[in-house]
Amino acid sequence: MTNTALAGASAPAAVAGGITEPGIYDMTAEEYHADRVSLSSSGARRLLPPTGCPALFRHEQDNPAEPKKTFDLGHAAHRLVLGDGPDLVRIDADEWRSKAVKEEVAAVRAEGGVPLKPAEYEQVHAMADALRQHPVAAVLFDPARGRPEQSLFWRDRPTGVMRRARFDWLPDARSGRLIIPDYKTCRSAAPSALAKAVEEYGYHQQADWYRSGAKALGLADDSAAFVFVCQEKTAPHLVSVVELDAAAMRIGAARNRRALDIYAECTATGRWPGYSDELAYLSLPAWAEIRDTEEYL
């Protein structure tokens, strides 16, 4: 694990559980996710309603979930597109029910690899090939113009919280506007579907978080762009490259600020509350109220 970013930066500084000095670190995904000092973008999103709260965030930090089979395809596609990540291992069996095959799959996972069925193995290679044919995506992930899987750590000035982000791809420094791409697999890369996904998964918060990291470490200014390269899992594996508008970025920044304030307070007090400590007064969802008013009243 090395700090490769800041001129004059010291060797990686860490305490039990995490990095304490800002910089760009060359580290494994396991080392990155094991950090318990800094706050990530996904952690910030988990701190906030409507689907998260501090108590859920703390529980998930203390009880990391086991890797799910459903994530294997995404990890495999990332490996081929970015050129970095776990080894992909083809398991020559369409069904993984026998004892021998289960043991083979378990052995691959134990070694840090991603086991794939034959059809999945062919699928992710087809996805990588399709992405390399896209005129914009192919340039954004050009191996000659950047580095994959770079871990950034920086300190939030208002709260003192150490923040972190793991960039899919960090472009090399050059003149002109810095464009930071993030690769995502999806069911549909149609713009209307992606707009819903941005709201559902908080991708506007991720975009603001990563831009903040690049700016804090002197890699970019306010003109830097963060774009999502979204690719469908099913053939012909269509690709859309999207940048969020100013309104979405403002909302993402405001939610991130709220999450950082909550994290700083919870860390200081040692108290991680749930959704609410008070009696909640509920109304029907607006759509249900309109429906039933029209039908019964």
Rank of each mutant, 00 (worst) to 15 (best):
F228D: 01
A144L: 12
V101C: 07
C230Q: 04
G23A: 05
L56A: 14
Y203Q: 03
P135D: 07
A264G: 04
D92I: 02
P86C: 10
Y25P: 06
F226H: 09
H78W: 14
C186M: 08
K102P: 00
S41N: 13
A165N: 05
R257M: 04
D208I: 00
A110T: 01
L73D: 06
R79Q: 15
A173Q: 11
K117V: 05
E30S: 10
P49S: 11
P143M: 10
A65W: 00
D182I: 02
L219C: 05
K233T: 08
A110S: 08
C186Y: 03
K233Y: 05
P22I: 06
R258L: 12
V124W: 10
W169F: 14
G17C: 08
L170Y: 04
H134Y: 07
D277V: 05
L282W: 10
P285H: 13
H78R: 11
D94F: 06
E295S: 07
I262L: 15
T234M: 02
S223R: 14
A126I: 03
R250P: 00
R211F: 00
S175Y: 00
L6S: 08
A128S: 15
R97L: 11
P191S: 10
A264I: 04
N256D: 08
V242L: 13
W287M: 13
A137R: 03
S192Y: 01
D221T: 14
Y210I: 04
A220N: 01
P64L: 10
E95R: 14
L80W: 11
H134I: 03
D261V: 07
A189K: 00
R46H: 05
A130W: 05
S276G: 05
G74K: 06
H134C: 04
P181W: 01
P236C: 06
L73G: 01
T51P: 01
A190P: 00
K102W: 08
D261H: 01
D292F: 12
K102Q: 15
P273S: 11
Y201V: 05
P158M: 04
V37N: 06
R291Q: 12
I91T: 11
A216S: 11
I19L: 12
A220L: 01
S151G: 02
F57S: 01
L73R: 13
W272I: 09
R174K: 14
G160N: 10
Q123K: 15
V114L: 08
F226M: 07
G18T: 02
A29F: 13
I251G: 03
K69C: 08
D129S: 09
F71L: 10
A5I: 02
A14Y: 07
Y275S: 14
S42R: 06
K233D: 04
R187W: 04
V227H: 03
G52C: 12
Y203T: 00
S188C: 00
H204E: 15
L260F: 04
S42W: 06
L73A: 09
Q231Y: 02
L194W: 12
P12T: 03
T159R: 05
Y263C: 04
E232K: 07
Q206V: 01
V124Y: 02
A254H: 01
R132F: 10
A197D: 12
I91Q: 12
A248C: 06
R79T: 15
G23M: 04
D72E: 13
K196M: 11
